[in-house]
Amino acid sequence: MSGMGRAAKVRAERRLETARRGARLLDRKQRILEDELERLQIRTELARAEWGDLAKEATLWLRRAAALDGTGRIAAAAPLEAAGVVLRWGRAMGVLYPEDPQCRLPAALPTGGSSALHYTAVVHRSALEAGVRVAAAQRAEMLLAAELAATRIRQRAVENRWIPRLENELLQIRRQLDAQELEESLRLRWAADQNSGNTAGSMLAVGGKGD
């Protein structure tokens, strides 16, 4: 029984050490994700501010072009092909997220209108590129924030439930082993006392016969 108890103690100690090591790794992962998320949040704010300025400028020049050239010439200046986006992927603690997107813009058509119409097309292309950067940054921020929240939940589960449960299990095993060792010690002492008493009695009996 004591051998089985000692084996259970070793297993419980290993599981507890695994849980503690897991908690340390989750804490490290959480800190790395926090740092990366902070970096992405700063990048998102900068990209959002840039996109906001360009969008306002594009709106202003679109109104001027409409007043000078008319909506028909504006429509004729629109590219025939749609823009595309090529994403590069970053990685942080196993999380993939879009990073440094490249916007593929179609070739610009000759506007044939005023300089306002030409500049309107230029600023709209810049605003589109900035919008793509904002979208990618927001998506990256969302993915990392979701992983960070999940990591915090797992860490709390390990620290608040798994480790205390294993510590209690190990404590119970140690108490059981202590009780078994005490019982075994008392049994051996009792047996030794019995043997000592029997030996003394035999010696007295032998001495009595000699007299």
Rank of each mutant, 00 (worst) to 15 (best):
R161V: 01
V206Y: 05
A157C: 11
Q180V: 06
M142K: 12
R73E: 01
P106N: 07
G84M: 09
Q155F: 14
L204E: 12
E17D: 13
R88K: 15
G72W: 13
E184P: 02
Q138Y: 02
V95T: 14
E169S: 11
R24A: 10
E57S: 13
R20E: 14
L143F: 06
A19G: 03
G52N: 00
A192T: 13
P110E: 12
H118Y: 10
G197Q: 10
R88E: 04
A150K: 15
A205M: 07
E169D: 12
E184N: 10
P106S: 04
E184D: 13
T199F: 14
T111G: 11
D69L: 00
Q155W: 14
R187E: 11
M142F: 06
G84H: 08
L62G: 15
A191I: 13
L68M: 03
L171F: 03
A66T: 06
L204D: 04
S115C: 03
A19S: 06
A23C: 02
L204K: 06
C103D: 05
E17N: 12
A107P: 04
R15E: 15
R104S: 00
W51K: 10
R154A: 13
A23W: 04
A78I: 01
Y97G: 02
S2F: 02
S196F: 15
V86M: 09
L68H: 05
Q176T: 04
A127P: 07
P164E: 15
D178Q: 13
G113A: 01
R161Q: 07
T44P: 05
R104A: 00
A49V: 01
L96E: 14
L26I: 00
P98V: 01
E81L: 06
M1T: 08
N198F: 13
L62R: 15
G5A: 14
T18E: 14
V122Y: 14
A65M: 03
L171H: 09
E181S: 06
T111R: 09
E38I: 00
L25D: 09
A67C: 00
R63Q: 15
G201I: 08
G131N: 07
T120P: 00
E57T: 07
V95A: 05
G201T: 08
I32M: 11
H118T: 04
D69V: 03
G22S: 12
A75F: 08
L186E: 03
R161D: 12
K209T: 07
I42V: 13
L109S: 00
R20F: 06
L204Y: 00
G112A: 05
A12Y: 04
R11M: 10
R15Y: 08
R15S: 09
E57A: 13
V123N: 11
R161W: 12
L33H: 03
S202G: 07
T71L: 12
D27W: 14
E36A: 07
N195S: 15
G5W: 09
L87A: 02
L170R: 14
D178I: 04
A76H: 03
R24W: 10
R88Q: 11
T59P: 05
L37N: 01
A191M: 15
A47F: 02
E45R: 01
G70L: 08
V10T: 08
